[in-house]
Every structure is written in structure tokens, then in C-alpha cells.
Amino acid sequence: MAVEKSMASASLAEVVDRILDKGVVVDAWVRVSLVGIEILAIEARAVVSGVDTFLKYAEAVGLTAAAA
């Protein structure tokens, strides 16, 4: 088949998608340091909430305003 079925360990993205925020949680034990992940999430939110995002979508459909 053209679409290959693989184990999750074949792709880091597939692993990240699962093991960091799902599954059995044991409260109060040492867990993953999410510092890096949180920064990524904050950056993603900043982009999503920004005016620039909408302007990016406007550009994607060919809005070409004259330079100011």
C-alpha cells in the first residue's frame, strides 16, 4: 500500500504527540520538565492570537496592498 503503516517510534512527532500529555499520571512524582514545550506553546499562542496571523491569511489569498 502507498500509505505506509509504521510503529510510532519511526517518527519523533508521533511519539511527542502521545507520551508527554496523556496516559497514567502519578501525582507528586518527578515528571517531565516541560520548560521547552511551554515556550513552544506560548510562541504558538502568540502567533495565533496575533493580527499578523490574519494578515498572513489575507496574503495567502493574494491580498497585495501597496507598500506604505
Partner: peptide, 22 residues
């Protein structure tokens, strides 16, 4: 309707356009 107009003049409508696209 926005094409070719100065970027500052169409800023708000550009945002509205982007929202519609999104």
C-alpha cells in the same frame, strides 16, 4: 476591493479578510 491600496489604509479590512479566510 483592497488590492493595490496602501497597507495602512486597508489594515482593518485586511484583518477582516484574514479572519474570513481562516
Amino acid at each position: 476591493s483592497l488590492a493595490g491600496r496602501p497597507a495602512q489604509a486597508v489594515r482593518y479590512e485586511g484583518i477582516r479578510l484574514g479572519q474570513m479566510v481562516k
